[in-house]
Design a protein around this nucleic acid. Structure first.
Lengths: 140, 140
DNA sequence: ATATTACTTGCAACTCAGTTGCATTTAGGT
DNA sequence: ACCTAAATGCAACTGAGTTGCAAGTAATAT
């Protein structure tokens, strides 16, 4: 926790017009700390023993998603991962690469493929998500 | 159920070196019948009242995935969807478009974006998945 | 054709990420 | 300081998918 980060968190909450509560600050700081998407469980672990209840974490994350602060992605089986959406275009987040051997995930900033084209008239694309599976340098 | 389809199913199972059992034939026929990915529940519904147990459906689908006959995709929240993989490249299935209003899903055959490039040395891509959300012509 | 055996199936009970209901607490305006 | 809508925490729930195990069956060997 450093002061510049705290300021960021305050600004994020202000801009999103969300009340500044302890759990929300804790959760946002946890997300600011890392460069990869986290699950509810990982966030709780990162915050430590005075972490908010898991229900509160889920609800806060949902608030953040509604406010556009956070993106939600499926990376591994049956678990949501959350990450800050700052620096993502609204229509397309960066791709995620997950190693099928060690499970590590990497964000591929600036490597988004072009948006799918050629859809019939009437289709409106709100979001494109790209997920990659394979082996990371350690495991290949 | 028509004979050409039955023949297809037989061939698929033979080629995959899987035993020809009633549940597997029923499930493969259900998948051959449609052009969109189905959930376990939708498959059971499609087969009707003499559908195999849901455990059997899951296990058969898993067998098919291992054999490369079927692809698995997350389209909606927390539910796996399964579809035949015939005519998919092994590294990249076609993208899927899901309407956030009516929930309908469409397969975008032949509209795959280029594979993500520029990964650091050592990364090996086994699979790229693309998911689109937005509005379909009926809902836009 | 029958026996053998490894593979499959079905049931019941379980797991676990995520959700819901509700009583209690708290942020932020008055 | 007070008030009220919004946020929190606990306990109980939901539902997709899984596991263990006994019973059934396809494909092979006899």
């Amino acid at each position: 926790m450093n002061s510049s980060k705290l300021k960021d968190v305050d600004e994020l909450l202000d801009d999103a017009k969300l009340r500044k509560t302890a759990p929300r600050v804790q959760i946002l700081k946890a997300l600011l700390d890392v460069a990869v998407p986290l699950t509810q469980e990982q966030i709780a672990e990162k915050i430590g023993k005075n972490s908010p209840d898991k229900v509160t974490i889920y609800r806060s994350l949902e608030n953040f998603v509604e406010a556009g602060l956070v993106h939600k992605a499926y990376l591994q089986e049956r678990v949501w991962h959350y990450e800050l959406s700052h620096h993502c275009s609204s229509i397309q987040c960066h791709p995620h690469f997950t190693c099928t051997n060690c499970g590590a995930t990497r964000c591929l900033w600036g490597k988004s493929p072009a948006l799918v084209e050629g859809l019939e008239k009437g289709y409106v694309i709100h979001r494109q998500q790209v997920r990659l599976e394979g082996l990371c340098p350690k495991c290949s």
